[in-house]
């Protein structure tokens, strides 16, 4: 059974329609890459999945539960879904360790020791165990983004969302973040990512979804999709990313 099921999702900001009748199913353990030009609605779609964007029509179902805009049900839902943002959004006033353990103690009601153990584990996983006591601004962008990934992983989500997580990073810093994500994919984490890294999508994704003007224009496994794009829009998009 699919872990994420979107059916007929519609969303607009005033007169501007960003999602028109989008339906998508994501299987457990799958890696799905959402690609498309800016403004095609891919980030909005991603943010609808954990309820950050309320939808105007249709239905989003995650792990058998309908996503509703009320605080109690969103709080439940979001414990199952990790999300990593383009701008990291670490808490600048807290150490790396506290960034990871804050939600563990508040939401999961873990003790300080339990939280610390989890923090050590997930920070090791992203290669930053030695940075526990550092503050975010003492880290490079790539390191901050890896802490943000660790912070999400600490909640043991069933699904991870990545919203252009390498777009703000210098090329040499992108790699370290992509490597962490690739490791996650290999371990079987269900991942939905909005990305401009076509090589990464080609190599790691099971399914690529091309969005165009608020619709899913074309989708399929990357091997087929990139080799034989069906629509002129996707062909053009691939060409533009090769520059």
């Amino acid at each position: 059974m699919a872990i994420v099921n979107l059916s007929g999702v519609r969303k607009s900001y005033g007169a501007l329609t960003v999602l028109r009748d989008v339906s998508l199913a994501v299987e457990r353990g799958a890696v799905v890459a959402l690609v498309g030009r800016s403004g095609s609605g891919k980030s909005t779609l991603l943010r609808c999945i954990n309820g950050l964007e309320p939808i105007d029509g249709g239905e989003v179902v995650v792990d058998g539960r309908r996503v509703e805009q009320n605080e109690a049900s969103l709080r439940q839902l979001r414990q199952e879904i990790g999300i990593v943002f383009q701008s990291y959004n670490l808490f600048p006033h807290l150490t790396v360790e506290r960034n990871v353990t804050l939600a563990l103690s508040l939401v999961k009601k873990m003790s300080a020791q339990e939280g610390r153990a989890v923090a050590e584990k997930v920070l090791s996983q992203v290669g930053l165990r030695e940075k526990m006591a550092a503050y975010p601004e003492q880290l490079s962008g790539g390191q901050q983004q890896r802490v943000a990934i660790a912070r999400s992983l600490a909640m043991q989500p069933k699904l991870m969302l990545f919203d252009e997580v390498t777009s703000a990073l210098d090329p040499e810093l992108k790699e370290e973040v992509l490597k962490v994500m690739e490791g996650l994919a290999r371990e079987g984490m269900t991942m939905i990512l909005v990305t401009h890294e076509m090589d990464f999508a080609r190599r790691v994704a099971d399914q690529v979804v091309f969005m165009h003007q608020g619709r899913i224009h074309e989708q399929g496994p990357p091997s087929r999709l990139f080799a034989e794009p069906e629509t002129p829009e996707f062909r053009q998009f691939i060409a533009s990313t090769l520059n």
Binding site: L52, N89, L102, A103, L106
Partner: peptide, 27 residues
């Protein structure tokens, strides 16, 4: 305080009050 702070805190499951108290007010 940047909106992203609210978003990341609520995405981790913090309530509005917890977000305000532990994340937003200290900043």
């Amino acid at each position: 305080i940047a909106k992203g702070q609210w978003e990341s805190a609520s995405s981790l499951g913090l309530t509005r009050f917890e977000t305000l108290w532990y994340v937003i007010l200290p900043q």
